[in-house]
Design a protein around this nucleic acid. Structure first.
Lengths: 226, 226
DNA sequence: GGTTTTACCCTTACGGCGTAAGTGCAGAGA
DNA sequence: TCTCTGCACTTACGCCGTAAGGGTAAAACC
C-alpha cells in the first residue's frame, strides 16, 4: 500500500471502505457548525466523486445510520465492577459526553429507524446491568426509559444554548435581559439576574443534579416494581 | 372584498399577514409525514409565489421561529388553583401533547435561538408557579431543568418509534425480533418478548411513571434546596 | 380627479442538494 | 490473451433557499 501523497487527493488505489466513509463523515460533521456533510462534500474529502459513495451505501440514510451507530459505539457500556447506581451514572455521563462531542447526532437519532450493531449492544448492556442490579423486567424498562429520556432531553437543551463557556453565558444573558420587558416576565428576569448570572454558576452542574434525583427515585422504587 | 372564487387560488385582495403565513406553515407541517414545508410549497398553499413571503419574513429561519412559538402557545400554562405538583404535572402532559401533535417542532427547537413571546410567557409562568409552590430560585431552576429535559427526551424517543398503535408495536417488534441474533443480545430480546409484547402494554404509560418519579424527587428536595 | 407614494407580489436566475442512469477502466481469473 | 467484474466517473433532473429587480393596485395627498 503506497504511502499517502502530500497533495490533496487521497491515494486512489486502496478502495474506500464503509468504515473509512463513515469515519470521515463523522469527522466532517464534527467540524465547527457545518452539521451533517452533503454527499459532495463528503466525497471531496475522500478524494472521490459524490456518486462513488453509492457503491457502498444505497442512499444517504444508510450513511446517517452508520454515523449514529459510531457515536453509540463511543458510549461507555455500564461497568460490572461497581454497584448498579454508579454504573448507570457513569453510562449516563459518558452518553452525554458523546452527544456533546457530536452535536449533530441527537438531531439524527429521531429520524433513524434501523439501529446498528453498536446501538443494539449498548441497549442490551444497559438492560442487562439493570437486571443484574436487581430490577425486574418491567422495572428495567422504566429505569431505561426515564434515564435515557433525561439524558437526551438535557443534552438537547444544552446544545441549543447559544453559549459554551460561562463567560459567554454572561454576555448572552446580559443581552437577553436588555431586550426583555422586565415587568412582563418578572420570574424569568429574576432567575437570570439572581441565579444564572451569579458567579460560579455552571449550567453543566445541573446535569448531575437531575441525574441524581432520578437515580434516587429508581433506588427507592427498584424493589416495588413488579 | 370579493367572495372567494371556486377555483384554486386564494382571493388575492386581502394581504397575507405573518399570522396567516405561520398558521398555514404549521398546518402544512402537520400534514402527514411531510415535515417542515419548503418556501415554495408554503407559498403555493397561500396562493402566492415563494418570494412574496420574503416581504414578511427576512428569511426562513424567522418563519421557523414563529412556528415554534405557535406550538409553545398551545401548551397549557401551569394552573394556579391546584397544588404545585398537580400543576406541573398538567403542564408536562400538555407539553408532551403539543410536541406529539406537531412532531416537527422538537427537531426545530434545538436550532432555534430567538424565543418568541409565547415561549417567554410560558417559561415565566412555569418558574413563577414553582416559586409560588415554595421552591427557591435555585430549586426552581433545578426543577425546571429536570422536568423539561424529561419531557423533551421522552417525546423525542416516542416520536422516533416506528409505530403508533399497540397493534403496530406488535408487528414491528416481531419483525425486529426475527432479525435479532438472540444469543448476542439476550436481555434485549427478553425485554421485547416478555415485556413489550405482553398484552396490555402501552408505551404511553411510561411517560407518567417517569414523570411521577421525578415529581416525587422534587417534592422530597424542595425544601432542602438553598 | 389627478398624481404620487407605498405596499405587495411577481419573474428570473444562481448555486447547492440527493440521486437515477449510463459509461469507462483496471485488476483478477480463464 | 481475453473476458468478467467491481468500482469510480459523467451527465442530468428536479428539488431547495434566496439575491435582485420589475410591475401594479390601493391609499394618500393636492
Amino acid at each position: 500500500m503506497p504511502a499517502e501523497t502530500a497533495g490533496r487527493p487521497a491515494p486512489r488505489r486502496t478502495t474506500l471502505s464503509k468504515e473509512t466513509v463513515l469515519r470521515t463523515a463523522v469527522a466532517l460533521a464534527d467540524e465547527a457548525g457545518t452539521g451533517v456533510p452533503s454527499m459532495r462534500r463528503l466525497a471531496e474529502r475522500l478524494g472521490v466523486e459524490a456518486m462513488s459513495l453509492y457503491h457502498h451505501f444505497r442512499n444517504k440514510d444508510l450513511i446517517l445510520d452508520g454515523m449514529v451507530d459510531l457515536v453509540f459505539g463511543e458510549i461507555e457500556l455500564p461497568p460490572d465492577d461497581v454497584d448498579w447506581r454508579t454504573s448507570m451514572r457513569r453510562r449516563a455521563v459518558s452518553m452525554r459526553g458523546a452527544l456533546i462531542r457530536h452535536p449533530w447526532a441527537i438531531s439524527l437519532m429521531d429520524s433513524r429507524k434501523n439501529p446498528g450493531h453498536a446501538t443494539l449492544r449498548h441497549h442490551d448492556a444497559v438492560i442487562g446491568r439493570l437486571r443484574s442490579g436487581g430490577f425486574s423486567i418491567a422495572g428495567a424498562a422504566h429505569a431505561f426509559s426515564v434515564l435515557d429520556s433525561y439524558v437526551y432531553g438535557f443534552t438537547l437543551q444544552e446544545l441549543s444554548l447559544p453559549f459554551t463557556s460561562s463567560a459567554g453565558l454572561e454576555d448572552t444573558a446580559d443581552s437577553i435581559l436588555k431586550q426583555l420587558p422586565r415587568d412582563e416576565f418578572p420570574h424569568l428576569t429574576e432567575m437570570i439576574t439572581d441565579h444564572a448570572l451569579k458567579p460560579g454558576y455552571a449550567y453543566t452542574e445541573e446535569f448531575g443534579i437531575g441525574l441524581d434525583l432520578i437515580l434516587d427515585g429508581l433506588q427507592r422504587r427498584r424493589e416495588s416494581w413488579p
